[in-house]
């Protein structure tokens, strides 16, 4: 490593486009992302197969930038890989753009890059292009990353949030709310301690295992910021269907439930970064569940409800006393309540 102290931090000079920018790229990004398609030119030149591609982009800001179960680098790969995977597309290539705060430790930047490389490898995707900008102290919160990705659509698979149909089973691929709970605890604003790690994971393998089990899948969506509850409302709205949930079937880790109990929060509205919500005909559900339960990120997959023609646009829960109750609509900022 460097023996010069001042090189241990990102400086504005690293973003000026000159020699120091090249050094930063060599030392951090080229060193970690190295692969045959990684470009040194203005744009990566890539082969295109027959068929269709899926194409998406996502920006990542998270405070703190590292947390139990991951960091912003891992998150930035998972987010875009998962968006592609939800369309049934095999992720192929990613670009990534960094905005780094002046003074950010280079060692941390390397950790972030290493996590990106590891996650990209696992997802089978290549990072082929990138950009680095440095912003003045206080202008960004440590580091922001934007990733853009393309993937190859799987023949015979077509998913969309508008495709849910009455009679579909609603499947969630694991316990809900872990990422949001982890971040909440990592910020330490409420001085609560619990053994919770983020569910942040690249899910192309998970999607592939489902597609291999059945091509008859109507919707796959990754639950991110607004949690599973927000996804359910989105799908109910886009597909103009009603959704019935059985509250007892929604998997929630006990610790997450405990934290939610303390702060008066609803686990269905805490963020996930490694959970899919899947809608498929009930007849396909057993095969899909069997495939999911063999996977590393979906061992606790469960059917949590069904799609109905009644009450379009609404999500209705069967509660612990057997009564029906509306799942509250997604709100704005999650505010812990005491009263």
């Amino acid at each position: 490593m460097d023996n010069m102290n001042k090189n241990d931090f990102v400086t504005l000079a690293h973003g000026a486009g000159g020699r120091q920018t090249a050094e930063l790229i060599d030392r951090v990004f080229k060193a970690h992302f190295s692969n045959p398609d990684f470009t040194g030119d203005d744009a990566a030149v890539l082969p295109v197969d027959a068929g269709k591609i899926a194409f998406t982009t996502d920006g990542f800001i998270v405070s703190p930038f590292e947390f139990p179960g991951g960091n912003i680098g891992k998150l930035s790969i998972c987010g875009t890989v998962n968006d592609l995977a939800c369309m049934g597309a095999k992720p192929l290539y990613l670009s990534c753009a960094f905005v780094i705060e002046e003074g950010f430790p280079l060692a941390k930047l390397e950790e972030i890059a290493a996590a990106m490389k590891k996650t990209a490898d696992e997802a089978g995707v290549r990072i082929v292009a990138g950009d680095t900008k440095v912003a003045g102290k206080g202008q960004v919160d440590h580091v922001f990353i934007t990733t853009t990705g393309v993937g190859q659509l799987t023949e015979g698979v077509r998913t969309s949030g508008a495709f849910a149909k009455p009679g579909d089973a609603v499947i969630v691929t694991g316990d809900v709310g872990r990422h949001g709970c982890t971040i909440l605890l990592a910020r330490n604003e409420f001085e609560i301690d619990a053994d919770v790690t983020s569910d942040c994971a690249p899910l192309w393998g998970t999607v592939k295992s489902m597609i291999d089990a059945s091509h008859d899948i109507h919707v796959i969506r990754d639950a991110t910021r607004g949690g599973v509850g927000t996804v359910l409302y989105e799908i109910a709205d886009q597909s103009k269907v009603g959704i019935r949930l059985n509250s007892a079937d929604v998997p929630v880790a006990p610790e997450v439930r405990g934290v939610c109990g303390m702060l008066g929060l609803e686990p269905l509205y805490l963020a996930c970064e490694g959970r899919l919500v899947v809608f498929a005909p009930k007849s396909e559900a057993p095969a899909i569940l069997e495939a999911l339960r063999k996977g590393p990120y979906s061992a606790n997959a469960a059917v949590i409800g069904e799609v109905v023609a009644d009450h379009p646009g609404k999500v209705v829960m069967t509660t612990e006393i057997g009564a029906q109750s509306l799942l509250p609509q997604p709100g704005g900022e999650l505010l812990p309540r005491i009263c």
Binding site: K314, V316, Q324
Partner: peptide, 17 residues
């Protein structure tokens, strides 16, 4: 305003079926 406010609760949970 509050999740437990009568109107909020009515709006969020009451308007169903």
């Amino acid at each position: 305003v509050s999740n437990e406010g009568a109107c909020s609760a009515y709006y969020q949970y009451g308007d169903i079926l």
